[in-house]
Simulated scan of single mutants.
Amino acid sequence: MSEDFYEVLGVSQNASEDEIKQAYRKKAQEYHPDVSDDPDAEEKFKKIQQAKKVLTDEEKRQAYDQMGHERFEQAQKQGGFDGGAGGRRGAGGGPFGGGGGAGGPFGDMGDIFEQFFGGGGGGRGGPRQGPDLRTTMEVDLEDAYHGAEKELTITRPESCPDCDGSGHPPGSDSETCPECNGRGQVTKVQQTPMGRVQQTTACRNCRGEGTLYEETCSTCRGDGQVRNETTLSVEIPAGIEDGQTLRMEREGAPGEEGGPNGDLLIEVSVAEHPEFEREGNDLYYRQAVSFPQAVFGDTVAVPTMDGEVELEIPEGTQSGEVFRLEGKGMPRLRRRGQGDLFVRAQVVTPESLNEEQREALEAFAEAGGEEIEVDQGFFEKIKNSF
């Protein structure tokens, strides 16, 4: 299996997050050590998990695409991505710290990542979009079929109303930051694996403001943010599948220095249905059929997501036989058309008989009804049913 994460999952570099997650689930089922006969299944399964972890994290994926596989792996070994977005080690905290050259050949890469991706460090240095937030939401199959508007309550950081996100009370005494002389920025010249780099970053002492304040806001304790509970209205599109993610723009964490909010990413979980099983856009249903109905044929009422429809059960229907109702499955997400509904006949053997029924069945047996022929495809049908 190739080392490249995109090739590991069998997706293109332009693949969406949903496509990556779908590819991961398929590969994980194929190479899970508990079910796979592949002698290298455990190693491949670990690589699949690693690929998914990196490619579904916006910041890690951006770094991976920028650096390439080998350099990204080296950076990971140096501890450069401990804890994902927002989880890099700060100054003096490891090989990606801002101070000194300790930590090997990647010891000064943290500031380069800040320049490329606007990460870490605590400095502001101009408007920046806030980080994305993630949450989950469960819907039932009916909502996934028809589409729905659901309410979602989350707790998220918001700009402090008392200091307007500044972290200090209005009118607080201040002084010019001695580290940057009021510029809000500092310039460093570094020798990196990519050559000599001159980099300007936000001053960490004053967080890019150029000014130090004597007081901090008592509400947010100088952080500029408070956590509040809020209720949002979420549009569930018809046809959404389990595990897919909805994006609500500008409903994430607040930006810095007047930057826009991040986005809210909602992973949707579709609850199991008591009657229908879903596979992609198709639905599956088991229809109980009595012995006389299977022998003589009948018309039965079959439930669908839009109400009952009639299904013709032909004479001689065998248990396990499948009938297809075209266009009665799930809507195709953001496309025209629907999947199909597959109805599997399940012939029910009566558990008790009255005297009249018993006599009739005995007469049937005496007339030769006990002779049973099994067609060649019977066992294959049984295997497929499982």
Rank of each mutant, 00 (worst) to 15 (best):
Y145T: 00
H146V: 01
L141E: 08
E142R: 12
C217G: 05
Q129P: 01
G182D: 13
E151K: 15
D108I: 12
L152T: 10
N181R: 08
R221L: 07
A102E: 08
G182M: 10
E175Q: 14
S166W: 03
T153L: 04
G125C: 01
E215F: 03
E215N: 14
V139R: 08
G121A: 10
G171L: 08
E214Q: 15
Y213E: 09
D140M: 04
G122M: 11
S218Y: 09
G126S: 05
T192F: 02
N205A: 06
R134N: 12
I154K: 03
G126C: 02
G195S: 03
G222P: 08
G120K: 13
D173F: 04
T219F: 01
I154W: 05
G107H: 07
A202F: 03
D132P: 01
C180D: 15
G107D: 09
C203S: 06
L212K: 09
G208L: 04
E175H: 12
G210M: 06
T153E: 15
P131T: 03
V189A: 12
S159L: 08
G122K: 11
Q185Y: 14
R204L: 04
Q198E: 15
T176R: 14
L212N: 12
G123D: 12
G184D: 13
E209R: 13
P193N: 06
P178H: 09
E215H: 11
Q191N: 14
E149W: 08
G103D: 07
R156D: 05
G126N: 06
D164L: 09
Q198G: 08
C160S: 10
R128Y: 01
P127L: 03
T211H: 04
Q185R: 15
R207T: 06
G171R: 08
P178E: 11
H168G: 06
G126Y: 04
I112M: 13
Y145D: 09
F106T: 02
P178W: 06
E175I: 00
P193C: 02
G125Q: 12
D143Q: 15
